[in-house]
Design a protein around this nucleic acid. Sequence first.
DNA 1: CCTAGTATGTTATTACATAACACTACCTAC
DNA 2: GTAGGTAGTGTTATGTAATAACATACTAGG
Lengths: 144, 144
Amino acid sequence: MHDLIRQAEALCQRSGMAFTAPRRRVLEILAASETPMKAYDLISKAGEGGQATKPPTVYRALDFLCQLGLVHRIEQDATFVACNHAGHSHPMALFVCNTCLKATEVAYDEVVPILEKAAEVQGFHLTRLVVEGRGQCRDCALAA
Amino acid sequence: MHDLIRQAEALCQRSGMAFTAPRRRVLEILAASETPMKAYDLISKAGEGGQATKPPTVYRALDFLCQLGLVHRIEQDATFVACNHAGHSHPMALFVCNTCLKATEVAYDEVVPILEKAAEVQGFHLTRLVVEGRGQCRDCALAA
DNA sequence: CCTAGTATGTTATTACATAACACTACCTAC
DNA sequence: GTAGGTAGTGTTATGTAATAACATACTAGG
Ligand SMILES: [Zn+2]
Ligand SMILES: [Zn+2]
Ligand SMILES: [Zn+2]
Ligand SMILES: [Zn+2]
């Protein structure tokens, strides 16, 4: 998980952006979490020990990290998860296990042109795509 | 748009469910709307004229209508839109125009097996799929 | 009637997210 | 150096989305 932090430092340096304390803190917490986290859990966690942390601080950090592709927002349930393809920009889907709540990240290049085409048939030009799912992950399937 | 109401009546009758006043009201408002609506706009709108309408009433109606497939929830921005394939149960994607905010509903059967397979490779078994997008719709493209 | 099932009404609360403004650090032009 | 711009944070307050919990009403079956 420390890889991700180093990844972030490098990425920021290259693009002339600051990897500041709150941004680092939020990313560290997310990277250490087994499952996607809700914003307010993140806010409490970030406030543990040090000074109290307020919503805008964390939301700003999340926006930043999401834009860099280091963190993904899961729209289905408004949670956030650290990326495990560190800095990828290829299309990916996030599948959340109903049992253990962990998220599985899956690349799906194949799908994009199909959806783009399907949209284009109706005259719709896609600029952003959200693909998410629910189901059962490998570990939970084996445990059953 | 009245088609949808009749559709709903028929669907409820067949499955022994009640198409009650609040459910009808919510569906009527959504069917009359050009664009997807936020829950609280729906709540205000439902309260116009008659008695005040409170959140749980509308959220319950929305849950009901979503389960029947008469309404879809757009996860990206927590809005709700009446289905225009009335009672379909095939997989569909919802693409929202950045300009006019209208939603375009697109069938995409092709995509499902690909995503299922991609998930299965990682041992993940899909039970629900959310496909959404953003972009520009036909009308707005022509206007530009 | 009575009661189980289904749905609504109402109050209160919880959870998610942002507006607005003050302040700091840093960089660059003059 | 110092004035002004940019980027980022801290803080207060508020806006927006969703649900918990419990009371009440309607309806069909025994
Ligand atoms: Zn990722
Ligand atoms: Zn699992
Ligand atoms: Zn539909
Ligand atoms: Zn449009």
